[in-house]
Design a protein around this nucleic acid. Structure first.
Lengths: 170, 170
DNA sequence: AGAGTTATGTTGGTCGGCCAAGTAATCCGA
DNA sequence: TCGGATTACTTGGCCGACCAACATAACTCT
């Protein structure tokens, strides 16, 4: 009896409850939740393409830029180098990506999307558009713009911390 | 010449460039980025407590609710059961959490925070507050409220997809 | 030229998180 | 009563992502 009522509740349409953890940081909490849901949704939409959530962004960069130095990719995606290494290993194994040593710098390697991967290009863009639309359903253009603006501000706030330690600088 | 100019840019202070992948879904892209940065920031702030990003929310629920059925926790956090199982195993090993079988239902187990963990309570809340403030620095109360509102809308949009398949339902 | 510093990637380990299967207990209906 | 759902949790596998430590190769500076 205690907890039966909600099982009927088909969705989370009513989010009014205070989930406990939300007190000390309601927005942080919302960000976590949205982040997770968004990633899961992306994964689901991408599933048909055989890509996993996260890989699509890398591939898009590659489709966009052609052959790129791995270090460029790392900077562009702002991910940890080791993360990119492993993603590339998997994508290479999956035949989506090719790597070859950079003749100009024997440390570096050049990465590019394979021809095979180009077949996915469209599907991935479609999935991405779909995701965007599902994410923003019911938001007016103004709201979308505002959300974009606020997210950018938040990103700028969070960025420095990731970059180094802090940049209270002044 | 296609992509050389940007390599000099030290940080993300200027986000104006179009990173390629952002075209088809600018907000999805922003969400991914913010999500990652936010999680990293949380991890950094939590580091001192010995908790990893994600665990704090679970602990908060536990501190808040006392002994809880694991299934309740799963519903509250809206995570995959297996995720919670593994988190609890690690937290248990770390001494933050205790589990015992539920006498009323031999399948279930009851979870609660250990006394030791309560020492972290304050530090975690502090970290969480800190995170919230760093995240929202420079946003007016109105902007914060608007962001919260928009995130909730987005969450509601994304939720149904995770729940089942879709709920286009009228 | 040789030593020290920086840049590029890689490996190994740990986490959160998901999915797919599987086990065990409870519930429910014929 | 008894056999089929349903519920509760676990296991194994895989991914993205991090960090720390490392090996190479390239620069730089005396």
């Amino acid at each position: 009896m205690t907890t039966d009522a909600r099982s009927q509740d088909p969705l989370c349409t009513e989010l009014t409850r205070t989930p406990g953890a939300a007190r000390g940081g309601p927005i942080s909490h919302a960000v976590s939740r949205v982040a997770r849901l968004h990633r899961v949704a992306a994964g689901r939409l991408l599933r048909a393409t055989g890509l996993y959530a996260g890989q699509e962004i890398l591939m898009m960069h590659l489709w966009d830029a052609g052959a790129v130095r791995q270090s460029e990719l790392i900077k562009a995606l702002e991910l940890d180098p080791s993360t990119v290494t492993k993603m590339l290993q998997r994508l290479e194994q999956a035949g989506q990506v090719r790597r070859r040593p950079d003749p100009a710098d024997r440390r570096a390697s050049l990465v590019e999307a394979t021809e095979a991967s180009c077949a996915l290009h469209e599907a991935v863009e479609a999935a991405w558009n779909d995701l965007e639309e599902k994410t923003l359903a019911g938001l007016t253009p103004q709201e979308r713009a505002e959300l974009a603006r606020l997210l950018n501000k938040v990103e700028a706030n969070l960025c420095p911390m990731a970059a180094e330690e802090d940049c209270p600088g002044a």
